[in-house]
Design a protein around this nucleic acid. Structure first.
Lengths: 341, 341
DNA sequence: TGTGTTTAGGTTATCGTTTACCCAACTAAA
DNA sequence: TTTAGTTGGGTAAACGATAACCTAAACACA
């Protein structure tokens, strides 16, 4: 039951009665080949179902028309949407997108990226944690073009495309403050996420500026629904619980809703809840989640565009594209029951 | 601003003062190399940050420790979870998972799979549509091991791992019938999805057997929320609308909920709703969605296990692993208001 | 007629890694 | 002491595609 060896250029060449190089030229539209020979080769290739070997092509220095993308995970709608949008944008330009999720282990993650690098992809879209500073300087020297997405870490010459987080969070908190909330709880995002850090920074500064800072109102999180549930339980169990909770992601906000339900609290009457991401279900879950939206499609599109430009010979350095975020007010936020003091 | 060429085996060999082959042997733990030389090589490799070139390794016939996975899309929680579970399972065995989404164009899709095949992955997990029959027979002859996931099409010798759909749907419909529903609407899944076909088959047979078949109660769908909304609008606009709607996926069921809200219908009092998938939010959206669950983690785990066995030299043929589905009853289904005739 | 240019297609070398094979030296058994 | 096996390491070849180069022939133009 031996498996048939894959058809190669040589097989096609033999069938068409020409050399392998001629086949390569015909299939890539290079060099000068007569109409007649071209047709002969095309027929032979089609007959044998020839498809070029990606590894060989890449090794020789050629293009694979594959872009690699590395994301932390896929279950979060944010990354799923980002990946979908990037795959769409790449597809429109005739490229495929290969998606890899990062493992928890940063050491292994770096090896993986190194291995993807020059391994098979013509370029890389990376969603990396903030702590990757010195690693990035290694990447800068790579032969393979790279674009960083949503990177908020320190200096790098690599191009960065990201959604704005700070201003969006400020807008959201001002919305809650304007409604009359004074005790606003916060559940943070994943530890090494630059976006989570930005959201926390905005929360801390707004609350300090308003003279409402209270460290007991801050809970750690990780963007998952479970952590949202746990954080909200802790916050609602406080002697003086918050009247509003801002969760660093929609998924966590859904967890907060669950915690509210557990305690028999009405949303938004007894507790206002806000998230971040404007995931597809934010508008669907009653009473609708107030949140902040990123133009994910624009971010993905711009990243792919920048990457393709670099691949096609126009490398960009020190470029930063930041897309604005947008406050989306829905039914989960309302004035607190207890009147203002 | 020339980019530094990537470090190769030869660079490491030169630094360590040995031949390239010796370096390869040390790094792969093959052959007999003295402790002393091993350490010298390891040090040199670490110093230069050497990472093997995937393309070259693959070309020579070696393993890349990458599994390729092809899914129709990633926005649906079902595929996102499946991909996550597969990536986890692969990771535990020291493999990486590269994820590709299929384009709408079947011609291009085949070329892509062919190109992945032998291009870079040691094995392939494919979620393919039913209409791929003759294409699969081509794949059977490939050198690269392949496992099909959720394939319900015709004969193939490739191993198949899938979740059960027919019995689960039957159980769900019997639940609705037992509650007293007689007019049960159906919104189908994506056109070429084998799972969608199975669910429809079960619906048709159960309804026929119960003498309740009515073609006007069937709406086309595609697994998206939007189609669920549209299908439900059509069904609820009928002269004699259904008292329950079974949507072929949870996302579509969420769309049905939206349609119910639009018409001011209470769920489940005025309309019972059921889905399929048991997505993470099914339990979260009030009043909780009655649905059917697949053991996604088991499916992914089994697929990876089968694939790795084949990669490691124990190819399986004609194997079919089918995992049972499970009815999950939540608050969205209840007896109809109108008493039984 | 001689010179330059375009067309058509073949030859050779190369990318980086690994497998197959070889040789030399040392060790253990007969 | 001879034989057989093990250890340590090197050489050559191969995987498949392609870029650079080369050879002819055909053609245009002076």
């Amino acid at each position: 039951m031996r498996r048939r060896a894959r058809t190669t250029l040589v097989d096609v060449a033999r069938l068409a009665g020409v050399s392998a190089v001629t086949v390569s030229k015909v299939l890539n539209g290079k060099g000068h080949i007569s109409q007649e020979t071209q047709e002969k080769v095309q027929r032979a290739a089609a007959l044998l179902g020839y498809v070029a070997n990606t590894a060989a092509r890449r090794l020789r220095g050629g293009a694979t028309r594959i872009l690699g993308m590395v994301v932390p995970e896929l279950v979060s709608p944010y990354f799923a949407e980002l990946a979908r949008a990037a795959a769409d944008a790449a597809g429109r330009c005739g490229y495929d997108l290969g998606l890899f999720t990062t493992s928890r282990d940063p050491q292994r993650e770096r090896e993986r990226i190194q291995s993807l690098l020059g391994g098979m992809a013509d370029g890389l879209l990376l969603v990396v944690p903030v702590g990757a500073g010195e690693f990035l300087s290694t990447l800068e020297q790579s032969q393979v073009p790279i674009v960083l997405i949503n990177y908020f870490g320190g200096a790098t010459h690599l191009p960065v495309v990201r959604g704005e987080n700070y201003e969006g969070t400020v807008a959201l908190l001002h919305h809650l403050l304007a409604l009359g909330h004074r005790r606003i709880g916060f559940i943070g995002g994943a530890e090494h996420s630059g976006q989570a850090k930005e959201r926390y920074r905005a929360y801390r500064e707004v609350m300090r500026a308003a003279g409402l800072w209270d460290e007991t109102l801050v809970q750690p999180g990780d963007f998952t629904r479970r952590k949202g549930l746990e954080g909200a339980r802790a916050l609602l169990g406080l002697p003086s619980p918050p009247t509003a909770i801002f969760a660093g992601s929609d998924l966590m906000a859904f967890g907060v809703m669950e915690a509210a339900q557990e305690r028999g609290l009405q949303v938004p009457a007894d507790l206002s809840i806000a998230g971040f991401d404007d995931s597809p279900l934010a508008g669907l879950i009653p009473p609708g989640l107030t949140t902040v939206a990123h133009p994910i499609a624009d971010i993905a599109e711009a990243s792919v565009r920048l990457l393709l430009e670099a691949i096609e010979g126009n490398p960009v350095r020190d470029q930063l594209l930041e897309f604005p975020s947008r406050l989306v007010v829905r039914g989960s936020t309302a004035p607190p029951k207890t009147p203002l003091p």
